[in-house]
Amino acid sequence: MMKYLSLIIILAGAYLAVPLQFGGNDYVIGIVVSALTIAGIAVAWAMLGNLGGMISFGHSAFFGVGAYGSALLAMNAGLPVFPSILAGGVIAGVVSILTMPTLRLRGPYFALAMLAFAEIFRILAIEMRWLTNGSGGLLSIPRLPTVFGFDFGSRLGGYFVVLTLVLLTVFVYWLIRNRPEGLALRAMHDSEDATLVVGVNATRLKAAVLVVSAFLTGIMGAFNAHYINFLEPDYAFNGSWTTLAIVAAIFGGYKTLWGPVAGALIVYLVDQFVFKAIMPSGHQLILGGLLAAIVIFSPSGLLPWLASRFRKEAGDAAHP
């Protein structure tokens, strides 16, 4: 009950309160959109980390491929923007199949291989001038359309779109987590033999999560391309898409459903609105300290820590 109630409050706040309060302030909405973009990548990243047991440093590749894929389809093939965002996700998912050989690698080797993979795509985007216009980048990428008189191309329109995409990403994650495939994936890391002898094909499941994670990350990239209407390789394939998502996911709790979202919002919004005001240059230092503190005091992240505090308080209240 509590769960549904808080979900409804959050949804009402996100779809009504935020627009009513800040709808006219493009600066604030712009920062919230960035935070939500990071949140989407963070959820997709955490899905691979938590279910697949794989720590990827290469998600910027999927973000960039989704962004370029969607932008190019809309610009050169004249695809309407929403379908081309979906196609951008599909392209990122397909591209992730190229990384499958790395699934055999464990721990740091997988992370390193993915880092190299992302770098290859950044270089490809610079070198394939005929397609991507190289470092010159893509200009005037079609903006999100006006539907029923509402301009999704505005800052506020972008906010509604990215918010919905993030919620859908969480929903997909939730669905997978509770299916037998998701259960098997969660069990796999600590109980490999147990899952094998009941018929779980670990390699195939991991490959499937990777594709889904890449698809969802690609969607965020594609959205971003049409939201800012401009792309260049060093932006779209920037490693900080990955690192910000990792920081957000670990800060919020990468094993929880909402941890990565909470992490992204807190890390990004607090940094931009609070720390930046206190310390205009070098404000990331405070953030770094905060992250270190969370990792030391609650290695599983902020949400699990809050949940245990809450349970304790409730317990104390029940037995004074």
């Binding site: 037998p180 495939e181 899952t195 009941v198 094909n201």
Partner: peptide, 9 residues
């Protein structure tokens, strides 16, 4: 545990 065993087995 049983759901996973049944589904995959």
């Amino acid at each position: 545990n049983l759901i996973v065993a049944q589904h995959f087995g």
